[in-house]
Nucleic acid binder design. Structure first.
Lengths: 250, 250
DNA sequence: TGCGATCACTTGTCTGAACAAGTCGGCTCC
DNA sequence: GGAGCCGACTTGTTCAGACAAGTGATCGCA
């Protein structure tokens, strides 16, 4: 209906791959076969398979048929930026508890992430997130001043802040940048996540931006060891992930 | 030259963004402006800006001009799969030392990563990699049997195995899948990287595949804390990164 | 002055066509 | 039986045109 043609084609192929009808290592139907089957032009078909390529599901080389690379589910953007949406997509129960919520001046790191001058007032929120009842992630978020009132208006037991902001305040995250590394659990981390001090934690620092590119939030999320793994695929023409040295941008 | 038109256009725009001529938050030239300037059709121009979009440099919404999201360098595929190529691109000195190299049956994890049955013979290589002289990464790699002879033919002090394989044996990595998490340094990890036992290490497990989708190698790389950070960008239409729970595929 | 409607501009989607370049299987020839 | 060639098939790149849909600034009206 409202969905674009190429998205329909892509979704059908995606389901065929995920469902195993198109086995990993096997070949995708040729473009002309898909054109016939869908009554679409070649451009539209290519748009569909290009999407699957960017998701890491299929690969291609000139002259040879496309091959299925993986049947791993890649999550949508919203699910990467929102822990709750991701977990819900997997059928896991998410709960959370806000431990602190206050306005205070931005730390140097928060200021840099949000792109504001140091000391600008931000709304700081500290939350523990549970997966199926078990503490899994510790989230320290700084919301930009312009978004703060909308966040403060939300209920304390709000499961997904980003969800609620989109629904109630029309603040929609559209772009994100992420930094991933490992850190040792500090005293507070250890206590709140129920692990020993010094345990390795997977840390994801990220900034979310709205459609205009304005920073909404800067967040430092720490995952309990063994609980969550990040996954990605790449191909010679698409490298979604880079490395950094220390904290220097490269 | 030999390069495609849309790649030329994309490279010019990329340089303008990286060089700061197109500031972050600013607007990209419209498609019609680019068509005029390059004498190209709209399809070609759109192919160029779509590439920048997939790199996280620009974002777009229907009706409004594209905006510059970031001036961060994203590395090419080869640099993500090859530590040496990545470091060289940054002007860092890479050295390495092979600590062990032997044929032995695949462990269950290696077998799964390579897609072979457990116990199949693989070539196991343990290496320490130094960045500017400092031990930074510990690499445990299992090469598939069909690629093993080519690896064994390489010199012991070979800086980049993947580079040499491509040049000498025609084995070129084309696709990759990566899992990223945090682990505590074991006794061997600690000794070889010069950190305390239990220090948090950033772990990247990955499999590299050739153009036909055959697995070349399965590797478990561990980075010293504070040395390297992974970075990625996403937008509403492109999510290059997913999460996993534990080791279950989701 | 404030507010809504209009309109030019911009991006999203789709079509149909053409040529280039690479792959793969089958065929012939030795 | 094996090596090499060839041709059908497939993907990569580019072009020109069309309509839909959303944005943003201007203009006019109250």
């Amino acid at each position: 209906m409202g969905t674009a043609r190429y998205l329909e084609i892509a979704e059908t192929l995606r389901q065929a791959i995920l469902g195993g009808e198109l086995p990993v290592g096997g070949r995708l139907p040729s473009e002309s076969a898909l054109m016939t089957r869908w009554g679409a032009s070649r451009g539209t078909v290519r748009q569909a398979v290009a999407l699957l390529g960017s998701e890491g599901l299929v690969g291609s080389r000139q002259g040879a048929r496309r091959i299925v690379l993986s049947r791993e589910r890649r999550h949508s953007f919203a699910e990467l930026n929102s822990f709750a949406q991701w977990a819900r997509g997997l059928g896991l129960a998410v709960t959370g508890r806000i431990l602190a919520r206050s306005r205070r001046p931005a730390t140097p790191e928060e200021a840099e992430g949000l792109g504001v001058t140091e000391g600008t007032e931000v709304l700081y929120v500290l939350r523990v997130r549970n997966l199926d009842g078990e503490p899994t992630m510790l989230e320290r978020t700084a919301y930009a001043a312009w978004a703060a009132p909308a966040v403060e208006a939300l209920a304390e037991d709000c499961v997904s802040i980003m969800d609620s902001l989109a629904r109630d305040a029309g603040i929609v995250a559209q772009y994100g940048e992420h930094l991933i590394d490992a850190v040792a659990a500090g005293g507070m981390d250890a206590r709140l996540l129920g692990v020993r001090r010094g345990s390795p934690l997977l840390r994801q620092r990220h900034v979310s931006r709205d459609q205009g590119g304005r920073a909404i939030e800067w967040s430092d999320d720490r995952y309990r060891p063994g609980s969550v793994t990040f996954s990605t695929s790449n191909s010679a023409t698409a490298a979604p992930l880079g490395r950094r040295i220390g904290d220097r941008a490269v």
